[in-house]
Amino acid sequence: MIQLKDVTFGYTKIAPVFKDLNLELAGGHIYGLLGKNGVGKTTLMKIIAGLRFADSGTTEVFGEPSYKRSPDMLQDLYYLGEEVYAPQLTIQQYVDAFAPFYPHFSREQMDAYLEQFELTGCTQRISAMSHGQKKKVIISFALATNVKVLLMDEPTNGLDIPSKSMFRKVMAMAADEERLFVLSTHQVRDLHSLIDSIILLDGGEILLAEPNEVITDKLLFKVVDSTEGLQNLLYAEDTLRGIYTVSENVNHEESKLDIELLFNAAISNKKKIKELFSNY
């Protein structure tokens, strides 16, 4: 559904943010986009959405270049930035004005999500709501559009703890086999039960973009007392609970994907990770 080929982008000529970046994303997944601060997660999503234009390479969504921002694409793509625009309209007025632009918009779903967020019957203007409430309204709207591609930049940022739980519920209600979600986040713990595929961005390139099963097929995540006897160890973290390790899964053992551990392992072993997961 989404394809980036040899994408290069930079705010200045000297220091490109991306160099010959390749990425392919398929529907039916909730991707977690991970990377260090300032690595370009937001920029990557904006390039996919057609909000920013790459300097070179092709970015295609539904087979069409995204920079064109064609109505067909926009009707099936929603970009939810970290800062949401809160118009001076009530929820009703907002839906009234903007829902018709999205042919698959569902009023029932909007009401269901608002109910989950405890915003039913709210007649306040969106601009007058608290930051968290504004976000909840726009998240509900975004999910109710039933677009095929939803890009969310730090969706749980600014939500209180009960709201984060509501967000997870609402996402579970909205996910299906065709929709593609990309959630960029620093707060992995908020979303790790929802994410079923990982995109790792570092140093201007994609280290990996795979479903969790593929990752746990190639990598073994284990907590041990000593690293003796571990084959092809990639990364080890000494903690009070034990030594958290990531190694090549030579014996095809089953283990649970630890996203934060994966992230640390990948950053310190870029070459090996790229080797293991190279599809391009």
Binding site: A49, G50, L51, R69, S70, P71, L74, Q75, L77, Y78, Y79, G81, E83, V84, Y85, F98, F101, Y102
Partner: peptide
């Protein structure tokens, strides 16, 4: 000039011509 508003407007499903 406000980034969130600009994104909102550009992402509205209508062609630039429209």
């Amino acid at each position: 000039a406000v980034p969130s508003r600009a994104m909102d407007y550009l992402m509205l499903p209508a062609s630039t011509a429209e």
